[in-house]
């Protein structure tokens, strides 16, 4: 079991390494991708400067906290898209029969499939996250907590992407649903939770687990809270397990019905 995990990890690291090597062949394009993504993210600071020029406090967040919110949202997104890029096109992988090549490998199908390519521009998101963290105040604890939550957050949003992508096992082509769900996560992740009221706020903190990926981390990094930290970690594990179960249920369906082959 442990050996299997080690072997899987080994393959993933190699994939990332080789992917990076490929992207670095064209240096200009590589640097453009990363740096433009940083600029791209930075442009939203303007939006918040305008908003904070109208009010000192938006949804209970100071300007500094909004920066933190952005930082954590960006690196969460970055880690997820860098390492697990293919989870965002899982629907396509399933409906076009591209899972086959992973099924004949003696590795975990889900992990192999979603880590089979990297997104270089996501490095820009990760870097941006850390840059903004530095601007909003850098200490060792903040750095460690930030890294921890970027990773748990990345796992959670990857889980959601996989769950949405897995819908294709049952409903065929459903990439638009997945895209919608994924961008919904990103859209909400960059606004303070306090501006939402009532049901919307409850939904965001629970079913759409933005609490786990961005809001709680911002609260915890601002004032440390052990209980909330544990909740984040444990929930991440539970959601991940659930994701694996659903994916493998879908995979059984893929293997037993093969709805995907419309052209034999």
């Amino acid at each position: 079991m442990l050996q299997a995990v080690k072997n899987q990890f080994n393959v993933t690291v190699k994939t990332i390494k080789y992917g990076l090597m490929r992207e670095m062949i064209n240096k200009t394009s590589f640097i453009m991708n990363v740096s433009f993504m940083i600029l791209n993210n930075a442009s939203f600071i303007i939006q918040w400067i305008v908003i904070y020029s109208l009010k000192d406090n938006v949804g209970g967040y100071s300007f500094n906290q909004v920066l933190l919110l952005w930082a954590i949202a960006a690196s969460t997104y970055g880690f997820s898209h860098f390492i697990f890029k293919k989870s965002y096109s899982l629907s396509d992988i399933i409906t076009n029969g591209k899972l086959d090549s992973f099924l004949v490998q003696p590795k975990n199908v889900l992990i192999s499939a979603i880590t089979s390519d990297i997104e270089v521009s996501a490095l820009g998101d990760i870097l941006y996250g850390y840059i903004v963290l530095a601007i909003s105040g850098l200490t060792l604890t903040r750095f460690l907590l930030f890294t921890l939550f970027s990773i748990t957050g990345a796992i959670v949003i990857t889980d959601i992407a996989v769950l949405l992508g897995s819908l294709s096992f049952w409903f065929g082509k459903s990439d638009m649903i997945a895209d919608t769900g994924n961008s919904l996560m990103t859209n909400f992740a960059t606004y303070p939770d306090g501006i939402f009221k009532g049901l919307a706020r409850i939904l965001l903190l629970t079913i759409i687990p933005l609490g786990l990926t961005t809001y709680f981390p911002v609260w915890i990094i601002t004032t440390f809270n052990l209980k909330l930290t544990l909740i984040v970690i444990i929930s991440t594990i539970i959601i991940t397990l659930f994701t694996f179960i659903i994916f493998y249920k879908g995979l059984r369906r893929y293997s037993s019905t093969n709805l995907m082959i419309s052209k034999i």
Binding site: G59, L184, Y191, I195, F196, K197
Partner: peptide, 16 residues
């Protein structure tokens, strides 16, 4: 997606 975006803005301007 579009709907939710508008929703976010309603909330934001409501707050401001």
């Amino acid at each position: 997606n579009f709907l939710l975006l508008i929703f976010i803005f309603m909330n934001l301007w409501d707050y401001i």
